[in-house]
Write a protein that binds this DNA or RNA. Sequence first.
DNA 1: ATCTTTCCCACCTAGGTGTGAACC
DNA 2: ATGGTTCACACCTAGGTGGGAAAG
Lengths: 230, 230
Amino acid sequence: VDPTHFSIQPNLSLNQAFPIKTEEIDDRIKFRLTNEALWDNFHKHTTEMIVTKAGRKMFPKFEFTIDGLDPKGWYGIYLTMVPKDQNRYKFQAGEWSAVGQADVRPPAMPVIHENGFIVGNVWMSNPICYDRIKLTNLPQSDQTNKYLISLASMHKYQPTISVYLMNQSPHYHYKLVATWAPKTAEFIAVTAYQNQNVTKLKINNNPFAKGKKGFREGSIRKRSHSSSPD
Amino acid sequence: VDPTHFSIQPNLSLNQAFPIKTEEIDDRIKFRLTNEALWDNFHKHTTEMIVTKAGRKMFPKFEFTIDGLDPKGWYGIYLTMVPKDQNRYKFQAGEWSAVGQADVRPPAMPVIHENGFIVGNVWMSNPICYDRIKLTNLPQSDQTNKYLISLASMHKYQPTISVYLMNQSPHYHYKLVATWAPKTAEFIAVTAYQNQNVTKLKINNNPFAKGKKGFREGSIRKRSHSSSPD
DNA sequence: ATCTTTCCCACCTAGGTGTGAACC
DNA sequence: ATGGTTCACACCTAGGTGGGAAAG
């Protein structure tokens, strides 16, 4: 019966705890996407992520390692889908173009990693994966208390990590010590895939996407795609 | 970016935190099995739980509600499979009998609920379910850091809940404020079901157990069971 | 007309069941 | 022989995919 470390659970309505927040960036904290090669492949074609009302998981997964934390400090790691720019996008003639102003969107909501505030040692010992989150096009106001992130379709987003360190003195508070926004993980939210190259990458790399044994080697269904990628 | 509440994660090897422990039972804290009728049905026939090397989930689930906590206090809830007595059991002539001395067993390990230390308000607002745990007959020493609970086959256990309250003054420590051991949830660990009545209750009530549409209404398999229960 | 969204679906992965034969 | 344990397996539930038609 020994507490080992603390975590703060996401998406719950209580609001006790530590309202005091400061900032003090620690340059020793480093990040690395664990599946960087895969993200790169997608990024070359402009990554698309499906959004649905019920919420769709990200693929590739947003998974990374972190290094340079104080092994005994308590850290919480937040993910925010930051609007990349003020454009609306359109896929035409085989590529994405900015077309006009972005929709008005409510501010991006940070989502704390399900581990919550735990010691640096544990954060650094395993890849960190946002596995429960789902992307949705439902407005935030309609959401149930789940791991849904509201995005606007045909808009570009930058997954961004913020790391907070919990301090205990002179009083309990927490401070921002690192941010990270890997460009290769940016994506455009869509309700249906636009670029067939992206579709093929998803099918070829996501075990849940059919195709591997399905229609790839001749099935009943007729297909109409063409093209090149992996 | 607001912490809402704290939790302590289970089964991790770190050991920082709050070694000081006290006891002060609070009689206002009450518990209730959410699926009491089902537990009762099993208990009438003497509940059996399968243990395997890989770990087997409990059925019925150990799920309950709690009441009478301080809504703003931080509580952690532990589950311990306490050896019920010093007997070894055997199923013979259609019923369980004590036969000789229990094996020597290492002390029962409490498992903290995955929510860890969170405020009473949250504990009281939803049923509490130990959903991740699995029962195994592997010795503790062989285990990976998962939610495995080591039990001895043919021995009787009493699922027991312990509730700890985290105090902040005069220093950080936690104290035992309630225990609960519902007799209807006791069970005998087995590597294969002994009582056919128990098997039938499992099949009829666990959605993962085949039988509902399977061999119940005539299939190829020949069966050799007989009997009565639900 | 054109573009975007929604919905249902077949088809997967992942993993929780008891079975019965083999093993010890 | 006996009785407990293990293992591979068929058969489920649960849920993550893109497809395609239909709707907006």
